[in-house]
Design a protein around this nucleic acid. Sequence first.
DNA 1: TAAAACAAAATTGCATGCAATGAAATTGTG
DNA 2: CACAATTTCATTGCATGCAATTTTGTTTTA
Lengths: 144, 144
Amino acid sequence: MEDRYEGLKLGNQLCFPLYACSREIVKKYKPFLDELDLTYTQYITMMVLWERGQINVKELGECLYLDSGTLTPLLKKLEMKGWVTRQRAKDDERVLIVTLTGEGRKLRERAAEVPAKMSCCVKLSPEETQTLYSLLYKLLGDCC
Amino acid sequence: MEDRYEGLKLGNQLCFPLYACSREIVKKYKPFLDELDLTYTQYITMMVLWERGQINVKELGECLYLDSGTLTPLLKKLEMKGWVTRQRAKDDERVLIVTLTGEGRKLRERAAEVPAKMSCCVKLSPEETQTLYSLLYKLLGDCC
DNA sequence: TAAAACAAAATTGCATGCAATGAAATTGTG
DNA sequence: CACAATTTCATTGCATGCAATTTTGTTTTA
């Protein structure tokens, strides 16, 4: 009577392909991001900043599903590279505002090539990609 | 002409929901795995061992998409907890064989509850879950 | 208004992940 | 057979992730 363990198989839990896929895709980014001197997490942080120009740590954390324990050291590194500045909000000293610099904005030019370079190694049809995309956001929204 | 940056938006790249979803789901497991004194990575390692009883590090790495840099310290921890043993293969000393212990097998009893507990926080229909599942494995197989 | 409650970041400690390198054993080759 | 190439695992170094705690600042409340 092995049935009671059926759900415990690696192949029967959604979490595993999610986990594995996520890491494998991030790994695919590495050669492209290395050229920009960015890690994957730094890259998605810069994506937010390229769109918004400025954001505080709390909001950034909500965008990326990351907390200050991860973001604080990461943002210090981006600051050292000269791509962002970090300063306290004048009206509320608790809040740290991260601002894209001119150099940071320049990086966007080179980063603009990355999505196209990546897309060719995703072997799903546009419809499949769209479906996957919707399901992931549904999962992210409902459960997480 | 912002179009040239369209692909750079966080919401337009498959990688991001994958990455975020994976971490959020793993986080959901934490309270259940804490009860078993397992981390998520230790949990999926034990799942392989519960199915196979014995496996070497190379094959385990292929199953989990992890390398020895991650697995070696993790397996030492599982060994210290008494759930696995680690010994070299007699016919090839390079190979390290990981074997489930009696105690390790007992843990399966308690772990058998985990998938059911988790499933109720995944708000996708069975069809959607199946679709997501297939697409993830397709992506994992083709591209990764 | 003083103290308590709350909020936002920073810090700390631990466990991954992973690239790069090293060490030991095995295999292939001239 | 000797030795180079390969294979397998271990080690090292760095960058996350994240829970828990601390620090600093703001808001609420008695």
